[in-house]
Amino acid sequence: MENELADLFLRAARRIRRHQSEKLAPLGLTPAQARALRVIVGAGGPLRMGDLAQRLGVVPRSVTTIVDALEASGLVTRTPDPASRRSLLVQPTDAGRAVRGRMAGIRREAAQEVLAPLSPEQRELLRELLTVVDDAARGPNGG
C-alpha cells in the first residue's frame, strides 16, 4: 500500500514538474533557476549567496552556477556584501520581479492541468493531507 502510494505521489509530482518545465521554457528558465528566482524575489531584500544555497538545500557551488545564468539573463544582480567582503549579495532586478510574477501563473496552470480530474472537494482534501505530511516532516520547530 505505502509503495503504491509513494509511486503515485512521485508520478504526480513529476507530471507537475514536467508541465512547469515545458511552460517555463519560453522564459528561458530551468526549474532550478525558477526556484532560485522565487526565493530571491521572496527574500524581500538582498540575500547572501550562502543563505540562498541553504534555503535551496544545495551546495554553494551549485548556487553560483544558477545565479550566473540568472544574472546573464538580467534577472538578478550581485554586489559585494558591505558587512563581509568575502560575501556577495544577490537581489532581483525589475525584470526578475516581472518574470517571477509570470512564473506564479505558470506554476498554477501546471498544477491545475495535473489536478483537473479532481473535484474541488478532493483538491481540498489532498491539500489537507499533504499539509499534515509536510508539517510532520518539519518537526515541532518548523525545521
Results as ranks from 00 to 15, higher is better:
residue 1 M to Y: 09
residue 1 M to V: 10
residue 2 E to T: 13
residue 3 N to S: 11
residue 5 L to Q: 05
residue 6 A to R: 08
residue 6 A to C: 01
residue 6 A to S: 07
residue 8 L to I: 14
residue 11 R to D: 12
residue 12 A to K: 02
residue 12 A to V: 12
residue 14 R to G: 03
residue 14 R to C: 08
residue 15 R to V: 08
residue 16 I to C: 11
residue 17 R to G: 12
residue 18 R to H: 12
residue 18 R to T: 12
residue 19 H to S: 14
residue 19 H to Y: 15
residue 20 Q to Y: 08
residue 22 E to S: 13
residue 22 E to K: 15
residue 23 K to Q: 10
residue 24 L to F: 03
residue 28 G to V: 03
residue 29 L to Q: 08
residue 29 L to E: 00
residue 30 T to P: 00
residue 32 A to F: 07
residue 32 A to H: 07
residue 33 Q to F: 03
residue 33 Q to T: 02
residue 33 Q to I: 00
residue 34 A to E: 04
residue 35 R to D: 07
residue 38 R to Q: 03
residue 38 R to T: 06
residue 38 R to E: 05
residue 38 R to L: 02
residue 39 V to I: 14
residue 41 V to S: 01
residue 42 G to I: 07
residue 43 A to S: 02
residue 44 G to E: 03
residue 45 G to Y: 00
residue 46 P to D: 09
residue 47 L to T: 00
residue 47 L to F: 02
residue 49 M to N: 04
residue 51 D to I: 02
residue 52 L to S: 02
residue 52 L to D: 02
residue 55 R to T: 08
residue 60 P to N: 05
residue 61 R to S: 10
residue 62 S to N: 05
residue 63 V to Y: 01
residue 63 V to E: 07
residue 64 T to A: 12
residue 65 T to M: 09
residue 65 T to P: 00
residue 65 T to D: 05
residue 66 I to D: 01
residue 66 I to F: 01
residue 68 D to K: 14
residue 70 L to G: 11
residue 70 L to Y: 05
residue 71 E to T: 09
residue 72 A to G: 08
residue 77 T to F: 00
residue 78 R to S: 15
residue 78 R to Y: 11
residue 80 P to V: 11
residue 80 P to H: 04
residue 80 P to L: 08
residue 81 D to K: 11
residue 83 A to H: 05
residue 84 S to A: 15
residue 86 R to C: 05
residue 87 S to H: 15
residue 88 L to T: 11
residue 88 L to K: 11
residue 89 L to C: 07
residue 90 V to W: 05
residue 92 P to E: 09
residue 95 A to D: 13
residue 95 A to K: 15
residue 96 G to E: 04
residue 97 R to M: 14
residue 98 A to H: 06
residue 99 V to F: 01
residue 99 V to M: 02
residue 100 R to S: 05
residue 101 G to R: 07
residue 101 G to P: 10
residue 104 A to Q: 10
residue 104 A to W: 02
residue 105 G to C: 13
residue 106 I to T: 08
residue 106 I to A: 11
residue 107 R to S: 13
residue 107 R to T: 13
residue 108 R to H: 14
residue 108 R to F: 10
residue 109 E to C: 05
residue 110 A to N: 14
residue 111 A to M: 15
residue 111 A to T: 10
residue 112 Q to D: 15
residue 113 E to P: 00
residue 113 E to G: 06
residue 113 E to T: 14
residue 114 V to H: 11
residue 115 L to A: 15
residue 116 A to E: 14
residue 116 A to S: 15
residue 117 P to V: 13
residue 118 L to H: 12
residue 120 P to W: 12
residue 122 Q to V: 07
residue 122 Q to Y: 05
residue 123 R to T: 00
residue 123 R to S: 00
residue 124 E to C: 00
residue 124 E to P: 04
residue 125 L to H: 09
residue 125 L to S: 05
residue 128 E to S: 01
residue 130 L to M: 07
residue 130 L to F: 10
residue 130 L to K: 03
residue 131 T to L: 03
residue 133 V to E: 06
residue 135 D to E: 09
residue 135 D to C: 04
residue 135 D to V: 09
residue 136 A to I: 10
residue 137 A to I: 04
residue 137 A to V: 04
residue 138 R to E: 02
residue 139 G to A: 04
residue 140 P to H: 12
residue 141 N to G: 04
residue 143 G to T: 13
residue 143 G to L: 13
